[in-house]
Amino acid sequence: MPFHSGFAETAMIDWHQSGERMTHRPLPPIANLDRSPYNPVVNTMTQRGPAVISPQMEFKDKYFSLLEKGAKPGRYIGGEPNMVLKDFGPRAGSLRARVS
């Protein structure tokens, strides 16, 4: 990596040396939280829970079957020339997979 400056490692070392990880410190509250600015009923997709289709391959098939229902479906197909494809496997190594 020709432009890697190593800041990431430095930051990690600083953080390790600080010893902060030993005690969980809650994140500071966001500003103006006391004014209750947010309507809690906003995460519509989240509150519906996981989507009804679980395996990823079905998502893909379902996704393509829906594209004809919208305008300019070419926007959504992907697979363009020079697109990068890497075989990471379904959800391989993702945070979500690790947690679940």
């Binding site: 519509t44 997709m45 519906r48 989507a51 009804v52 289709i53 990823q56 998502f59 893909k60 379902k62 996704y63 829906l66 594209l67 229902k69 919208g70 305008a71 479906p73 926007r75 959504y76 197909i77 992907g78 697979g79 697109m83 990068v84 494809l85 990471f88 379904p90 959800r91």
Partner: peptide, 21 residues
């Protein structure tokens, strides 16, 4: 229009490359 279709069919926003949520 497409977002409405995805939402009604329970398909979350997917990446263009691998169609990963």
């Amino acid at each position: 229009d497409m977002a409405a279709v995805f939402q009604s069919e329970g398909v979350p926003l997917l990446s263009l490359e691998t169609k990963t949520p």
